[in-house]
């Protein structure tokens, strides 16, 4: 029991140190640094806001366009970026694995933690700035928003662990991962809500756990939106299964992680 507590203390220390270090190496290189984390989603929101505006389209269900786009892209980003970063935990951090204290899983957790924290901060800044602009802030249920984001992060971490182990076996995976997952961008509710698609299509769309996450975030943010088809349990089960596969694979490939 004491061994376990000591191990947990070391792991906590290592994850904390790694997260700080990641912040530095990821965002500290440029002068604008952390602003880059904001720029990308802002660019997306700006582009699609203009497209909506020119096409004279409004957001579904009486939502305002900017919060509609922001909740979609930010939820999606937490899931996909976490997965992306976690999947490169071993590849990108070989020099650190030199320290016996630092295990691949620590790097994965540190990266997921940093992506989640960044996602929450970016969300708060963008929607906070928007609320200041329009002079009104109504959040239906803050905890549900946070729940959606947490689920997205857990999902990203689990999928990332699977990819990370597969990458150790064959790093060609990193090259085909992009095109393979591209469709996710179109089916995760960035431009639509589950309620507005015909139920025949919805049946299939709801297999995608990322869509559940964006739906939950919108349910929490907008008083007028109710995500009838989204289920936190589904995302959780999906993640636990992936996590189980990821951890099993990690154990199998562990001796194959070469440091030099």
């Amino acid at each position: 029991m004491r061994e376990l507590a000591r191990g947990a203390a070391v792991m906590g220390r290592v994850i904390y140190a790694l997260a700080l270090r990641e912040t530095r190496t990821r965002y500290g290189q440029h002068r604008a640094g952390y602003l880059w984390a904001l720029a990308e989603p802002l660019f997306f929101i700006g582009t699609f806001f203009l497209m909506f505006w020119f096409a004279n389209r409004t957001a579904p269900g009486g939502m305002e366009v900017i919060p509609f786009l922001a909740t979609g892209v930010l939820g999606y980003d937490i899931a996909v970026k976490t997965m992306d970063r976690v999947s490169l935990s071993v590849e990108g951090n070989r020099p650190l694995l030199f320290y016996p204290h630092v295990q691949p899983l620590d790097v994965a957790f540190a990266r997921a933690l940093l992506e989640f924290a960044t996602g929450v901060v970016v969300f708060a800044i963008i929607l906070g700035a928007y609320s200041l602009w329009v002079g009104e802030l109504v959040i239906d249920n803050f905890l549900v928003v946070l729940q959606g984001m947490t689920l997205a992060a857990v999902l990203g971490l689990s999928a990332g662990l699977v990819l990370c182990a597969v990458t150790v076996m064959n790093n060609a995976v990193q090259r085909i991962k992009g095109p393979l997952l591209r469709p996710l961008f179109w089916v995760s509710g960035l431009f639509f809500t589950a309620n507005m698609v015909p139920s025949s299509a919805r049946e299939y769309l709801m297999w995608n756990p990322v869509l559940h996450c964006t739906e939950i975030i919108r349910d929490g943010w907008f008083p007028q939106y109710h995500a009838h088809s989204a289920s936190p349990t589904y995302v959780l089960i999906f993640s636990v299964v992936l996590m189980f596969i990821g951890l099993t694979l990690e154990r199998r490939v562990r001796p194959r992680v070469q440091l030099t």
């Binding site: 203390a9 904390y16 270090r21 020099p95 030199f98 320290y99 630092v102």
Partner: peptide
């Protein structure tokens, strides 16, 4: 010689990281 340091960080930052993981 080999490994252990993050090339992008300074010597001091690398020391800080190691001090942190070893408490």
């Amino acid at each position: 010689f080999a490994g252990g340091f993050s090339l992008a960080l300074s010597g001091e930052e690398n020391c800080r990281f190691v001090a942190r993981i070893y408490g």
